[in-house]
Nucleic acid binder design. Structure first.
Lengths: 349, 349
DNA sequence: CAAGTGAACTGTATCGTTACAGATTTTCAG
DNA sequence: CTGAAAATCTGTAACGATACAGTTCACTTG
């Protein structure tokens, strides 16, 4: 077990001459101080490359520190300075459709690996509790920075963190006139391009499986879609019964109903890979065929859909990359870079 | 920002009569001590329900603590006691096939939410570095417990943590004669049942897309498969060119080759949903059809495969449940429960 | 009524680190 | 050679919590 403390005070040591630190334990500043004959403060400052420490001393300290494998005790630093070296990824336990979470986590981890930051998952159960985990982090100082997703145009979390001047990055943009770090996928571009391709294939009546209306990227995707409809002279078919947050079963059922109706579309734009699966199932349930009765363009997180339904036109969203960008953004914010420089948008591959 | 400290010492306070804690800041024991007129120690012990504190006092302290929203400072506790209240999930950044990570994380989070534990992701990049993150946690005391996956029969990580008597749980079993907490899916049962079903469908020549040989569940799945082959009087077709760790493209290519060869199988057992997709692609590339030329049974993490290829017989592995079990297991271990009681095996749904 | 007992409470030191205010030595201008 | 400024280095206190060793004080008990 072990590490930071022992949970038991050893016999009180004489106050003046500090006993030599046990060499068995994990090295601390005291260990290095003892080995170099310097004071603890000096060692601390030497490792920080402070200007009032001699060059040769710094070298010596660094050498010994490396030799004994010194790593600052996180609890000590945190207690003294308030710096946690933690980035918190705030996750909804509900949005468990098709695990987009994994690649984000991997992307973030990749970037954090080269830093002293640890990644902590801070979950919340229901959409209405989204503010709670953020508040928790702010109130308890549990992290130095936060990454959130499922961003809304007027996002209370963003507002709160801006107000407290707390470093964060959002997956998705907001629309409140507040400048903050974000990474987003160009959903507008995606939807526009999707409509273009369908139109080019001769499709006339196009529908969209869209994100839930309260999320920002609903607007983006919707805008791109609507522009496409206008620019390419095709017709939009409303599909508002369900959105990407519905279960696959619900999407399938709703789409099946739609495809049986009179005004069934002949072109489909799907905002997610998982949703596409449900759409395809619904489609085929009514006996229609891809590339024949309808065409479909889908945003996908990986290319597995192409393996099973090569007829679907896929546009790839690199979520792992999003994770990397988000991690860079928060860290940049913590380092004090201006938010303007920490915004990025990525295109479909 | 903030929380734990201010990174700046306020003007030195008089030593004897401790200044009243600022009411603006986050409450500490000192705050409660001041409000109740008790000593800091008393407050601490009252909140711990120590036997030497009066019942009425405890009640008073609890009330005030709740009132001001007291939450123990994690850094303080950690520094003093070594207890981190952190569970570390050690993850390979490579095993990024089809994100099984998400549901595990969600499952763990669900359980930890009701405890003071936080979930920290500790990644490692390459298989050969698997020991490094575990060593890191042990050496730095970064967590109170660890969860690992991709367990091997002789697993160096398990050995190390057992030796140091460090609480952990493994996703998958080991085979070293060491008793430790684990959760595992019954891969043997799965493979046996899979063969049974294929045999029942009249399939005679059956092959297996298996896990990489160094992982424990390779043996389990293999054993179940081999037993099935024996018990149901069918023939096993070797497929050793690739395993579940290969890329989908590689699996597909290898399988295509196999299906073109003389001894092509007519029944397939697939150890993963992602692998199945590659197999199906390979299969169809050579013009063969499911339910016709071949039948296939696949272990899947969710039922989306059934949506696109209902012909495939699927057996569900509930990975989220695995996450929950693993979290319970580590916590149980930390609480001192015997390892024997913290082992679980789950069947396909 | 002195001494002992137990209940209830508290002060001190400490975990590892860093901010701050010295302390000591060296170096030089005058 | 003197005094002051640099250049280096160091002790102390504090962050918040807890283990330990008391301290108080009301009661028993003989």
């Amino acid at each position: 077990m072990e590490g930071d403390g022992r949970g038991m005070d050893e016999k009180t040591k004489s106050r003046q001459a500090p006993a030599p630190p046990s060499l068995q334990e994990r090295p601390t500043l005291k260990t290095i101080a003892f080995m170099t004959g310097l004071g603890i403060t000096t060692v601390s400052r030497a490792l920080k490359d402070a200007p009032d420490i001699g060059a040769e001393t710094k070298e010596r300290v660094r050498l010994v520190a490396k030799q004994v494998g010194y790593q600052p005790n996180r609890a000590g630093v945190r207690l003294r300075t308030g710096k946690t070296n933690v980035i918190s990824l705030v996750l909804s336990l509900e949005e468990e459709v098709m695990g987009l979470t994994s690649p984000i986590v991997v992307g973030i981890s990749e970037v954090l690996a080269a830093t002293p930051y640890h990644l902590v998952i801070t979950p919340y159960r229901f959409a209405k509790d989204a503010l709670a985990p953020v508040r928790y982090v702010l109130d308890t100082g549990a992290a130095d920075g936060v990454i959130i997703s499922r961003t809304e145009p007027k996002d209370a979390r963003v507002e709160l963190m801006m107000e407290r001047n707390f470093p964060f990055a959002t997956h998705g943009r907001t629309d409140m006139g507040l400048v903050h770090p974000y990474h987003d996928f160009d959903n507008q571009g995606f939807a526009y391009e999707a409509v273009r391709r369908l139109a080019k294939l001769g499709r006339k009546r196009i529908t969209l499986l869209q994100p839930p209306p309260h999320l920002t990227f609903h607007r983006h995707m919707r805008n791109g879609f609507d522009e496409g409809i206008r620019d390419f002279g095709v017709e939009a078919v409303a599909f508002n019964a369900v959105d990407l947050d519905n279960s696959l079963a619900e999407i399938r059922a709703a789409f099946e109903t739609m495809m049986r109706s009179d005004g069934a579309p002949d072109g489909i734009v799907s905002g997610s890979g998982a949703g596409s699966i449900a759409l395809i199932a619904g489609l085929e349930a009514v006996g229609k065929k891809l590339n024949q009765d309808v065409d479909m363009v889908s945003k996908v997180p990986s290319d597995f859909l192409s393996w099973l339904r090569p007829e679907v036109i896929t546009m790839n969203e690199d979520i792992r990359h999003a994770g990397r960008e988000l991690a860079r953004a928060v860290i940049g914010r913590i380092a004090g870079l201006p938010a303007e420089e920490l915004q990025s948008l990525s295109q479909a591959l």
